[in-house]
Computed example of a mutant assay.
Amino acid sequence: MTGRARGAEIGPVGENTPVVILVRPQLAENIGAAARAMANGGLFHLRLVAPRDGWPQEKAWRTASGADRILEAATVHATLADAVADLHRVFATCPRPRHVIIETMTARGAAASLRDVAARGLRSGILFGPERAGLLADELAHADTLVQVPLNPAFNSMNLAQAVMVMAYEWWTAADSTPPARLVTNETRVATKGELENFFRHLTAELDACGFLRNPQKRPGMLRNIRAFFQRGEVTEQELRTLHGIVTELARGRRVLGRIEPDMLMDDEPA
């Protein structure tokens, strides 16, 4: 449509990324939200089969949040057969199978299969049915595999954009190498074992000086427990510097008190 900004940079469009096929979509807002979900997960090819209100529809751009290129490149097809004619594998999402015999996968399993299809240079597509009733049995017949998302069986209702988001997320994470957990250190870094040992010596010396480790029988076990506390996580260099400062200030305060405590004790002692 003319007179509109091109939207956000949504990344390179791969030739073999799965095609998202919305069958008989009813609301323009849902088409736009589906495009937004696609862009989140690196799916950029959109086909519309017999959209109820025609195409294009301005309202779709309002809910796409900048995924304009997907909407601008979307193709419209009169029949599902035409929309899947150039594909090698077709997956269909449907919460309620229409009494068909078909291979069924979870969204995660389907994403792994889609990645394998793409790696072999084949084209694939994912069917999503209309908002109210989903895909009909005759429409499911165009698919090789049924995709079902394991959700709360007492309430597994998703809207169109949510269903697209689940598949887009699984497609993206199937090839994503982000570790499940990591420590964000910003300007500092994880401390080395040598730096940690240096702090432990500093701390031990001050604990000895203040009498905390005065029991010789318990001292080895207490030191092991203290060491284990600091070894448990990835302490950063900045945190160690802060801890050094704390220990130093506590020791300084103890020495100052040590100079004034005798007079105070004399005043407080009973006659």
Results as ranks from 00 to 15, higher is better:
residue 252 R to L: 06
residue 154 A to I: 01
residue 150 P to Y: 11
residue 263 D to C: 05
residue 221 G to K: 09
residue 89 R to H: 13
residue 97 P to D: 06
residue 174 A to F: 03
residue 121 G to I: 06
residue 228 A to I: 02
residue 169 Y to Q: 08
residue 116 D to Q: 14
residue 230 F to K: 11
residue 172 W to N: 07
residue 260 I to F: 04
residue 242 T to S: 06
residue 20 V to G: 03
residue 74 A to F: 14
residue 104 T to V: 09
residue 269 E to D: 11
residue 150 P to E: 09
residue 156 N to A: 02
residue 121 G to E: 08
residue 110 A to K: 07
residue 248 T to E: 06
residue 81 A to K: 12
residue 139 E to K: 05
residue 77 H to Y: 10
residue 29 E to A: 06
residue 125 G to S: 10
residue 219 R to K: 10
residue 224 R to P: 01
residue 160 L to Y: 00
residue 183 L to D: 14
residue 148 Q to W: 04
residue 134 G to Q: 02
residue 230 F to E: 10
residue 262 P to S: 09
residue 213 L to A: 00
residue 13 V to G: 02
residue 164 V to P: 14
residue 45 H to C: 04
residue 184 V to H: 15
residue 85 A to W: 13
residue 122 L to R: 08
residue 119 A to D: 12
residue 187 E to H: 13
residue 72 E to M: 09
residue 74 A to G: 15
residue 103 E to I: 12
residue 193 K to C: 14
residue 63 T to A: 12
residue 192 T to S: 03
residue 125 G to I: 11
residue 68 D to Y: 08
residue 172 W to V: 02
residue 159 N to R: 00
residue 221 G to C: 07
residue 2 T to R: 15
residue 115 R to G: 05
residue 113 S to D: 15
residue 199 F to R: 07
residue 222 M to S: 04
residue 106 T to D: 13
residue 37 A to S: 05
residue 78 A to M: 05
residue 199 F to P: 06
residue 185 T to H: 07
residue 131 E to V: 04
residue 97 P to S: 08
residue 102 I to K: 02
residue 233 G to W: 07
residue 14 G to N: 14
residue 261 E to D: 06
residue 109 G to V: 14
residue 10 I to T: 09
residue 18 P to V: 13
residue 89 R to Q: 14
residue 39 A to F: 00
residue 210 C to V: 10
residue 132 R to I: 10
residue 66 G to L: 14
residue 165 M to E: 05
residue 84 V to A: 11
residue 239 E to L: 07
residue 259 R to I: 08
residue 52 R to P: 07
residue 44 F to T: 00
residue 243 L to S: 04
residue 68 D to R: 11
residue 82 D to N: 03
residue 98 R to V: 13
residue 212 F to W: 00
residue 120 R to T: 15
residue 33 A to S: 07
residue 194 G to I: 13
residue 227 R to I: 11
residue 180 P to W: 12
residue 27 L to W: 02
